[in-house]
């Protein structure tokens, strides 16, 4: 028990990351609305960004700039990696939203169940024709 409290006190930022990650994954898997799925994916990705940022923090560290008052720096590399990952995340979201717009144009809905129903209708129609 004391262990767990100690972990919560010292590593709380990782708990936040895990919490967000689970929210994101759950939203992606469980929601039937295409936009909500994209939101879930975004939360999931952002939790990973926070994970990288949390691990780069050094106690009493500052930004890695030459400065008289401090010689302890945070690790800048994960920040740079995450800049790249954010770009990737933004473009994934853009592609997903573009797809959703087109799906809405074609099917008139963005609810997964409705789309599946319409797809079944398509198949039936082509079978009977």
């Amino acid at each position: 028990m004391a262990d767990i409290i100690h972990i919560i006190q010292t590593k709380y930022y990782y708990l936040v990351v895990i919490f967000l990650m689970m929210i994101g994954l759950y939203a992606t898997i469980s929601s039937r609305n295409l936009i909500k799925k994209v939101i879930g994916i975004n939360i999931f990705q952002i939790s990973v960004f926070l994970f990288y940022i949390a691990m780069s923090k050094v106690k009493h560290g500052t930004a890695p700039i030459l400065w008289d008052k401090s010689h302890v720096y945070d690790n800048p590399l994960p920040h740079v990696l995450i800049l790249t990952a954010i770009v990737v995340s933004v473009s994934t979201t853009a592609v997903a939203l573009a797809l959703i717009i087109n799906i809405h144009k074609e099917y008139g809905t963005i609810e997964e169940d409705m789309i599946l129903e319409k797809q079944k209708l398509d198949i039936d129609r082509s079978n009977t024709a």
Partner: peptide, 25 residues
């Protein structure tokens, strides 16, 4: 149908890539 197939691939593909990103972390 391709749009929906592509969307499903996008969701699973992004989860996969993010898992890889966690692994790298």
């Amino acid at each position: 149908e391709a749009l929906v197939a592509s969307y499903n691939y996008l969701i699973l593909g992004t989860i996969a890539a993010t898992f890889i990103l966690i692994g790298i972390g």
